[in-house]
Structures are given as C-alpha cells and as structure tokens.
Simulated scan of single mutants.
Amino acid sequence: MSDSTTLPRPTAPPRRTRRNRAPFLLLLGSLLILIAGLGYPVIWQIFTSFQHFGLEQQFGAPPTFAGLENYARIFTDDRLWSVVARSLAFCFINAFATVFIGLMIALLMRAVHGGARIVIQIALLLAWAMPMVAAVTVFRWLFDYRTGIVNWVLTSLGLTGFERYAWLSHPMTFYFVASLIIIWMSVPFVALSLFAGLTQISTEVTEAAAIDGASRSQQLRYILLPMVRPVLSIVLLLQLIWDLRVFAQIRLLQDAGAPVAETNLLGNFIYELGMGSHDFAGASAVSLFVLALTLLISWPYVRTLLKEDDQ
C-alpha cells in the first residue's frame, strides 16, 4: 500500500468587500450645500476683484475688466498696511491673553470642588450667553467720559487725569477697551474647553508625580500642559482667526466718537471701502488678502496635523 500525499487545496482569491456608498450619498447633499454656500461668495469676490465694480454696477451697469489694477491700487495704499499692522497686533495680543486667562480659570476650576466650581461655571456661561451688542453697550457705559463708573473710581482713588477722560477718543485706550470686550466674551469658551480637556487627565497621574517630588509648577509644565496640548492648540487657532476678523465690536465702539481712521481694523477697513466708498472691487481684493492671512495663520496647525497623521 503506497503512501498517498495530501496536496494542499487551492485557496480561493480573496473576495473584494463592497464599500458601502450609502454614507457618502447621504453626505453628498450637505456637502454640495456647504460648497455652494462657502464657494459662491469666494468665487464672486475673486471675479469682482479683477473688475471695475462700484455703485453703478450695483444698479445694473455691466462691470469692466480691470486686471490687477485694483490690487495695485489697494496694496500701494499706506492705509492698508497700517490697518494690517494694527489688526495683527490686536489679534495676537488678544488671542494669547485670552488663552492664558482661560487656562488659569480652567486650572482654578480643576482645583476647586462643589459650589465654588458651579459658581465659576455659571458665571462663565452667563458671560458667554450675553449678546454682543449688550456687552458692548455695558462697556461703553462703564468707560463713558461723562457718567462712566471707571473714571469715577479712578478719580476717587486720587489718580489725576481721569476726570471726564474720553477712553474711546484716543487710539491706545480705545484698543484697551476693545480688548477687554473681546477677551471678556472669549474667555468662557477657552476656559470651558480647556477644563473639559483637563478632566480627561486622571488625578492618579498628578498624585504619583507629587509623591515623586514634583512641584505644582512642574506638574503643570511636564504633565498637564503636554496632555492638554491638542485642545490648547485648537482653541488658540480659533481665537487667532476670530480676533483677526473682529468687526462689530469695533464698529459699535467707533459710533461712540472714536477716530475711525486711527481705529479701523481689517474688517472695518473692508466695510469702509465697500459701503462707505462704494469701492466693492477694492473691498473684494482686501477680503481675499484677509483670507490668505487666515490660511497663513492656520498653516502651522494644519502642518502639525499632517505630521501626526503620517506618524
């Protein structure tokens, strides 16, 4: 009887799994609406920036092609670059100040418990929920040169020079008041976001570090901040973008008697070009420049995300 060898059975080629296209089809409608809603204004601004588009075109006159004339005219205007410098300084100072204050409040909420934490959270939510126009109105009343409580307190403390001092009539103090409004309205979002990130860190980690002799500052520097860095990065990026596009708060403060030419930021400068001077082509060119600035500010964070995906 001869030994029989068992031949291996041929394996069938792996069957290709069908990719379910239903989720993509369900998202297609929302994606098209999003592209239309965001893409149409950008495309319109791109075409308008290369045309002669003024008040006559608003009433039906056909625009004419201008080439790069609008860009050359706008970007050789000294007013634009002074506004850009003010806007970038305002943006970065307020964004970093907001994130720092929000981080301190988040650490405070992590340190306290019970009723104290609830009181802080309710105060943050109330400040965050206040309408922007109401918040600006309150700050205008606080810093009013005739009946403002800030001048009254400073004068009562014996500080000279604050009797009927017009905070909003001087560019430096104008931006100080504007920064207070922006920071006060933005800190709740940053603080609550960072506190949510801090709650994901187990207390056992910090307790073990304390047993090993790490001080509170070392725990913050080497444990808490590295572990909450993704949340810190995204809130800083969002704050930079929001502060670069500030418009309504500055506009409402300017209505109180501020020098418009010396207090304009990029959003207000675009508004003055479009609605004030009816230079819609120039306003479109500056708007695209602001879009490019936003992308430039966002690029370091996007590059970090791409590196993390590669790893």
Rank of each mutant, 00 (worst) to 15 (best):
A261G: 04
L220A: 14
L273H: 02
D279A: 05
M275W: 15
A209S: 10
T263E: 06
E272R: 13
R216Y: 15
A258W: 07
A208E: 15
F269A: 06
L220F: 14
G213S: 12
L253N: 00
A210M: 09
I270L: 10
I270M: 10
M275Y: 15
L238D: 07
H278Q: 03
A256R: 13
Q218C: 05
L266Q: 08
M227D: 00
T206S: 11
D212V: 01
E207K: 11
Q254L: 06
I250P: 06
L273G: 04
M275I: 11
R216D: 15
L266S: 04
L265W: 07
P226R: 14
L253P: 02
S277C: 00
L232R: 13
F269L: 08
Q239Y: 12
G274F: 05
I234R: 02
Q249S: 04
I223W: 08
Q239I: 10
T203L: 11
I250L: 14
S202A: 13
N264H: 02
H278P: 00
L236T: 10
A208Q: 13
F247A: 00
N268E: 00
V205S: 05
F280N: 02
P259G: 03
A248T: 00
D279H: 10
L220S: 13
S202C: 06
F269K: 05
M227A: 06
L240S: 08
G213P: 13
Y222H: 15
V228G: 08
D279L: 06
P230R: 14
P259Q: 03
R251W: 14
I211L: 15
F247G: 00
Q218K: 11
D243E: 14
L273E: 01
G276Q: 03
A248E: 05
L232F: 11
W242F: 15
L225W: 15
D243G: 10
A210Y: 02
D279R: 15
Y222K: 12
E272L: 11
T206F: 04
Q254Y: 07
S277A: 08
L240V: 12
L238Y: 13
G257S: 06
L265M: 10
Q249W: 09
V246G: 03
I270W: 02
R229S: 15
E262A: 01
R216E: 15
Q218P: 09
I223M: 07
L238M: 07
L238P: 09
F247Y: 13
F247M: 04
A209W: 05
A256P: 02
L232Q: 08
R221F: 10
V260N: 08
G257R: 08
S215N: 12
I234N: 02
V205R: 09
V205W: 00
V231G: 01
R221G: 10
R245Q: 15
L237F: 07
I241N: 07
L253E: 03
P226D: 04
D279V: 07
Y222L: 10
R221D: 12
L265Q: 02
V205F: 00
L236Q: 04
F280Y: 14
D212S: 08
I211E: 09
Y271E: 00
Q219F: 12
A214L: 07
